[in-house]
Deep mutational scan, measured.
Amino acid sequence: MAAGGDHGSPDSYRSPLASRYASPEMCFVFSDRYKFRTWRQLWLWLAEAEQTLGLPITDEQIQEMKSNLENIDFKMAAEEEKRLRHDVMAHVHTFGHCCPKAAGIIHLGATSCYVGDNTDLIILRNALDLLLPKLARVISRLADFAKERASLPTLGFTHFQPAQLTTVGKRCCLWIQDLCMDLQNLKRVRDDLRFRGVKGTTGTQASFLQLFEGDDHKVEQLDKMVTEKAGFKRAFIITGQTYTRKVDIEVLSVLASLGASVHKICTDIRLLANLKEMEEPFEKQQIGSSAMPYKRNPMRSERCCSLARHLMTLVMDPLQTASVQWFERTLDDSANRRICLAEAFLTADTILNTLQNISEGLVVYPKVIERRIRQELPFMATENIIMAMVKAGGSRQDCHEKIRVLSQQAASVVKQEGGDNDLIERIQVDAYFSPIHSQLDHLLDPSSFTGRASQQVQRFLEEEVYPLLKPYESVMKVKAELCL
């Protein structure tokens, strides 16, 4: 049975990233139509530049190519590739079939990587351009969430054990800070992308030097003109047959890092959902379990974690691919890159769409948070109580021993009897502590235990987050809708 299948058929496997999760716009960027249309555009740009620099290419040939950029006979191309065992030459023939007058000058002087690699770089750039505003929107939604809850005390956790208090907004800023680093890295790697350009079979530009009869300047002009037509500021000066596969490492490393950030955020949300302090959106008709109707599973956060793990592992592909590119190139890269580049971007696209949807509907339960604080705060307040007693004339050592005994009794009630923490009640009825009984409410005010959390939130948002989001103001209103 021949390899390949009808990918629109229910009898043929289709990647869930495309069929179930990723956005239509990201799927289109990695589609065959987008790819092969870009090949034709690159052939047109090459012909236009070659004509401008004096090669015998007519206006009629150029116009014929322009008129057929979208006229792609995919069936013919597939048949040609089956016959020739070469995808680029299959599309040269297919393009030439609908451009008979231009057929002889299509791909003039070029090698397969002229269309293959340059198209990949265009796709990487455009895919990054799709991700950047999506990530900015996630940051914006979380920034709104953090600002609104900047002063809401909550129990902090280290080692997932109760620690000092923080605020809900401050905790959210930990998430935002990681995503801001990801946004900066995505922008950097996007701006650092260079075009492969017009380089020939081993990167020496020998074929173009021959076409222009040894004119170095025209060869350099050709490279520059096509690079500018493709919208790049610069091209690699040095290439082998391909652009260095280190570029793929750079791009997928940034995406993998984004995956790590999203995994951490969504894990926190899942843990908070278990504590009943916070939940992701839950639709009115949504079913959490087929057997347990009360369940409210954090399905979206779980999906993000599941896909983020996949995204983090994909960076190993370009690392290994770059390491086995012998001399000017081997074909070890080809099949692998067809999979890992598309999957990385479709996965990143999915987790950003999902995280935006989550961040637009996060639900906080202040009463649950308050109750958990009441359970733990008495123990945390013991040092403040000791200091207040010393100020009232008591002995630190005597007070410490009193607190120690009462704390152990209260802990026994919590752990052995399943009761509430009654340390404060014990202190309130103990005559030894009568000098500070009137101060206990103040000493137990949760806001006095959150330090500068709310001020940190305000400063972080104003100095770091809002300036970073400013270039994306025009796209901030787009909502994230999930079908599944």
Rank of each mutant, 00 (worst) to 15 (best):
E383G: 06
G116Y: 01
V251S: 08
D87Q: 02
P56M: 13
I105Y: 11
F157C: 02
K295N: 05
T94Q: 10
H93N: 14
L258V: 14
M312I: 13
T111V: 00
S151L: 09
H93R: 14
E481C: 13
T227I: 05
A150E: 09
A260Q: 15
R196T: 00
I386F: 04
V405K: 13
S207K: 01
V405I: 14
R137W: 05
S447F: 09
V475F: 09
V115C: 08
H91L: 09
C340G: 08
T58S: 13
S412E: 12
Q409I: 12
L130A: 08
E80W: 07
E148C: 11
A49V: 08
I105S: 14
F433C: 06
L121P: 03
P100S: 10
R374K: 12
T154L: 07
Y365L: 09
L84N: 09
I139W: 03
E473T: 13
V363S: 04
T239G: 00
I339N: 10
E464A: 05
D6F: 11
R372C: 06
F449K: 08
R33K: 12
N336Y: 02
Q205I: 03
Q286I: 01
M225G: 04
F433V: 05
Q320M: 11
W326V: 03
K284W: 13
I403A: 04
D420E: 05
N71F: 13
K82S: 10
G197T: 02
Y365S: 07
L362T: 09
E25D: 13
I105L: 09
R459F: 09
P446W: 08
S12W: 12
L331W: 01
Q428H: 14
Y365D: 04
F145I: 00
Q416H: 09
E48R: 03
H217R: 12
D430I: 09
F28I: 07
L484E: 13
L69H: 08
D268K: 00
M316L: 11
L53I: 14
P133Y: 15
T58G: 11
I369P: 02
E213Q: 15
Y243L: 07
L128M: 10
P133H: 14
L352N: 01
E425R: 12
F195A: 05
M181S: 10
F212P: 01
S289G: 01
Y21E: 00
S207H: 00
Q41S: 12
K199I: 02
Q286C: 03
A348K: 01
Q439F: 05
A163T: 02
T347A: 13
L341Y: 12
A260Y: 05
A344E: 06
G109R: 00
P293I: 07
A78Y: 11
H217M: 12
E250Q: 07
Q51M: 11
D422I: 08
V138D: 09
Q286W: 02
P16C: 12
W43F: 07
L132T: 12
P318N: 05
A146E: 00
F449I: 00
A348C: 12
K276A: 02
S140K: 15
R85I: 09
H91M: 10
